[in-house]
Write a protein that binds this DNA or RNA. Structure first.
Lengths: 228, 228
DNA sequence: AAGTGTGAAGCTATTCACAGCC
DNA sequence: GGCTGTGAATAGCTTCACACTT
């Protein structure tokens, strides 16, 4: 897709798709763990994630050897390994720039906090919003970005501003040391090497649906193959 | 990634990444058109989209031949062709299931309407929310899904319910003919062949950032390459 | 001269298949 | 016997390179 982040692991390249699948595996395994499941084969995990057993094993093999031949994987052990691989064993301090509707939704999104992502500062360019409270945080003026981010130890910034101002915000937060950016503005952003950027572009996803529907042959024709 | 939708065009397979790039091209070209730019080379378009000239030409070549050798592409013509390719020349009727925070943010998202996606019905399982107004729409009970969707000519459904109930909602809307689904619930969904599914998983994106930051060598080491 | 359209080459990701361990 | 870990094979996507058009 649009953003590409690839890291090296033991000399082998780990693709973005592998990392995305690891997230999926972790979510699933956490559920199974809560249900009291103790052990699991790559085949069973694959079936539940919509992929193949070989893919699961290959994904995991980049990071070590976690299974027992003939037995499968220990759910608890794999959960713990995946959390460690994904860097989830700690608290990530996050700032949100843009306190509009999307920003407000993100502030209330429980899932973030559960995974260790804590939104600890909110900024907005609109003087009318500055000073208001949002989910327990006071909205700060964007002018304070450069002073507050380093002082608060924030490492990840969520961009939820209009497309026109997104690149400028990125430049500013990168200049004070932020190396992880999650972008909700529907625009292509440039970041220097060493900064990780992920995009969430809802309009683009809808357009992909529009494309699929417009080109589907009406059901029986098998023009679409989808698996989620 | 997780969801895969591929359609055939003149016997050639068009990948999801190609469709995603077409969306990008369209967004950019629309801006240029508003700025009065009349013509453009694949090289110029590529540079602005973070890809290569060959990629742009290859992407377009699946759908026809729109450029003039030696000259490049007419911006206006390409905008019009892309809109047609993406199926954006019409009004898409969309329903939102789940009137929580994310749902509320989506209702207010101007970008959707601008591209022709109109949210025309909102559903929620919570009796306390049913009957309330959201951006001019009355929240309906989920029990009315099966009757309202076909009657309203809705073709795309946005899922913004908790993970636990997402699959059931999908089954129900698919059973009444919906063939396009945009899923915000952080869970893997199954749809039958012929139904297009796209996922927006914000927690997963944050985890990918976490992974990148956790494995970056601290800047100089060049372990990360990112381009948005 | 400039720039498209496209087969062929190169590269990356996924799947296969099987040796090896439990 | 069952299932993992992994080199080898395949499929898919991207880049190259050049014939061809304006």
């Amino acid at each position: 897709m649009v953003s590409q982040i690839a890291t090296l692991m033991n000399g082998k390249k780990v693709s973005e798709s592998t990392v995305a699948r690891l997230s999926l595996y972790l979510r699933l395994l956490s559920e199974l763990q809560a249900d009291g499941v103790l052990t699991l084969s790559s085949e069973a995990l694959a079936r539940r994630c919509g992929t193949t057993a070989a893919q699961v094993r290959k994904d995991l093999s980049f990071f070590g050897t976690f299974g027992k031949r003939g037995l499968g994987y220990s759910v608890a052990e794999l959960v713990s390994e995946l959390r460690s691989i994904l860097g989830l064993g700690r608290r990530w301090r996050v700032a949100l720039v843009g306190a509009g509707r999307i920003g407000a939704a993100l502030l209330g999104y429980e899932d973030f906090r559960q995974q260790g992502f804590y939104i600890e500062a909110v900024f907005d360019a609109d003087p009318a919003k500055v000073g208001q409270r949002r989910s327990g945080l006071v909205v700060r003026p964007e002018a304070e970005l450069e002073s507050v981010l380093p002082a608060s130890g924030i490492e990840i910034v969520i961009i939820a501003v209009p497309a026109e101002s997104a690149q400028e915000v990125v430049n500013r937060v990168v200049s004070v040391g932020v190396r992880g950016i999650l972008n909700f503005a529907p625009t292509k952003l440039d970041v220097p090497a060493g900064v990780a950027l992920k995009n969430v572009n809802m309009a683009m996803e809808l357009e992909a649906l529009s494309y699929a529907l417009a080109h589907s042959t009406g059901g029986a024709g098998k023009a679409i193959a989808a698996r989620g």
